[in-house]
């Protein structure tokens, strides 16, 4: 461990996290999840639908309250880290006003975080500087996603969550989006992204965390996870890991 990591709290520190939703029946979306992400890491968060990825991200953003366990973001409570602009997120859909222009949206976001934020730089780093005057409603899905990315960059967060950021994008849109994210992560930002595209995890993440039924079932580099599962592709490892739990009560984990 380097001295910097010892003195700085981790980017994300999740311990024994449990989240239950009480409806007609109790649903345990997150079931004792432990995860530490060091600063500067780019982590892919994989899991089938309903594995608890989005719920975990919501808890780390202070949008929901844990049933049990703790989440610390950069040593702070999630809501405090969000208000200070130290953690930001790109959600899969929504969160935009269609009648605003791209420039207005980012300028408003910057204004909400106070003065001194470089709107132009955020637009450029997200690759949408040429779209500044375009109405959000006229932007393609990929352009809107890069706008969300620009909004997330405005406060210069140390930690960035991307929740299935490229779902529904075409190949070019995905490539453009990831090249913007990669260029940004190279500057040292910590990135945690949830995705269904295993190739994105393999290409862009330093570390892959597989969750199933609200728990971490594998954690390591893509190569380590394939080796541990004894398979040749990440997809095979993913299928094996996420179907092993739950097929039988005594199944291997």
């Amino acid at each position: 461990m380097t001295p910097a990591q010892e003195t700085h709290p981790p980017a994300l520190d999740v311990r024994g996290l449990v989240k239950e939703f009480h409806g007609r029946e109790v649903v345990r979306a997150v079931d004792g999840l432990d995860l530490r992400v060091a600063r500067g890491e780019v982590v892919a968060f994989l899991g089938p639908n309903g594995a608890g990825k989005t719920t975990t991200i919501d808890l780390a953003l202070g949008l929901a309250r844990p049933t049990a366990g703790t989440v610390r973001v950069l040593g702070q409570a999630p809501a405090d880290a969000v208000a200070a602009g130290r953690v930001a997120a790109v959600m899969q859909t929504g969160g935009l006003l269609r009648d605003l222009t791209v420039g207005e949206t980012v300028r408003l976001t910057a204004a909400l975080f106070g003065t001194g934020h470089d709107v132009r730089a955020s637009l450029e780093r997200a690759g949408i500087a040429d779209l500044e005057r375009r109405r959000v409603g006229r932007c393609s899905g990929g352009q809107q996603q890069r706008l969300r990315f620009a909004m997330a960059l405005v406060s210069e967060p140390d930690l960035l969550f991307l929740d299935e950021p490229t779902t529904g994008m075409d190949v070019m849109g995905r490539r453009d989006f990831w090249s913007a994210v990669r260029a940004d992560a190279a500057r040292g930002r910590t990135v945690v992204f949830a995705t269904h595209y295993l190739d994105e995890a393999e290409l862009y993440a330093d570390r892959v965390v597989v969750v199933s039924r609200g728990r971490v079932v594998a954690d390591g580099t893509a190569a380590q996870i394939k080796d541990a599962a004894g398979v040749r592709t990440l997809e095979d490892a993913f299928v094996r890991l996420t179907s092993a739990v739950g097929t039988s009560a005594g199944g291997a984990r």
Partner: peptide
């Protein structure tokens, strides 16, 4: 539209 949720990621 999820705008109010987006605002919760700001101060």
């Amino acid at each position: 539209q999820g705008w109010t949720r987006q605002l919760r990621l700001t101060p």
